[in-house]
Simulated assay, not measured.
Amino acid sequence: MSVVENQSLSGGCQCGAVRYRVTGKTDYPHLCHCRMCQKASGNFFLPLIGTEKKDFEWTRGEPTWFHSSKPVRRAFCNVCGTPLAFDTVGDTVISFTHGSLDDVGAVTPVEQSGVEGRVSFYDKLFSLPETVSNRDDLPGGTSDVSSTNCQHPDHDTTNWPEGHR
């Protein structure tokens, strides 16, 4: 297992209503392919990183929790819907979503779990053609997206939103 000692990490939801900080070690960064994680993330898999609950704190707002099963609850922002955490009730560890980190590249996944649910075309994803999105399908293209962006920046802020929402 990959353990990162005493790394300070921050992250949060897309709109900035819910933010968190990790001040201790992280453990078991992985991609979960189980069907429940697919549904919870709306994706082919859900990247998760574990840390001790004592080293994890919500620094702005509070997430909404959904029990996806009796022993497991999942945190998400009730404003923008961003999946934020996976918590096994009664455990000392909480797992937060890798993609919600401010610096997504700070931790590297070490394993894939729940592979029985992995989609059949997963191994072909990296051979697909690649393009840079110019969003010419939207009125105003990328300039309109940039000028009206309500996404929280990838760092902690004192005040948010700054005129958005």
Rank of each mutant, 00 (worst) to 15 (best):
E62F: 09
L46R: 01
M36D: 14
I94D: 06
E111N: 03
P161Q: 12
S146F: 04
P29N: 12
F44K: 10
C80Q: 08
G163R: 02
K53S: 06
C37Q: 10
S133C: 13
P129L: 10
G114R: 07
T131G: 08
K54A: 13
P29G: 09
L48Y: 09
R135P: 02
G50R: 03
H30S: 12
G11S: 09
Q7N: 01
G16R: 04
G16T: 14
G117S: 14
T23Q: 10
M36C: 02
I94G: 03
T51E: 05
G99N: 09
T88Q: 07
H33M: 14
C34M: 13
K39D: 13
R74I: 05
A40D: 11
F126S: 13
E111Y: 01
E130Q: 13
R73Q: 15
E5G: 00
G163W: 04
K53P: 04
Y28T: 08
G99F: 10
Q151D: 06
T108P: 04
S95E: 14
Q7E: 05
S8G: 04
F66G: 01
S147D: 00
A85V: 05
S69W: 05
F96T: 02
S100V: 07
V22Q: 03
D55W: 06
G16W: 07
E162M: 06
L125N: 08
G81I: 08
N6F: 02
F45V: 14
Q151H: 10
H98D: 02
G105K: 14
L128D: 12
D144L: 03
M1E: 02
D27R: 04
C150N: 02
S95D: 10
C34Y: 11
S143L: 05
E57P: 02
P109M: 02
A85F: 06
G140R: 06
T148A: 00
P161C: 08
N78A: 10
R19S: 08
F66W: 12
K70W: 00
H152Q: 09
A106Q: 06
G42A: 11
G16E: 11
L128G: 07
S127K: 14
F44T: 15
S147G: 01
D144H: 08
P29C: 10
F45Y: 15
G16D: 12
T23N: 13
T88V: 14
T59S: 09
P63D: 11
D123E: 15
W65D: 06
W160T: 13
W160S: 10
H33Y: 15
C150V: 14
T131D: 13
S120C: 06
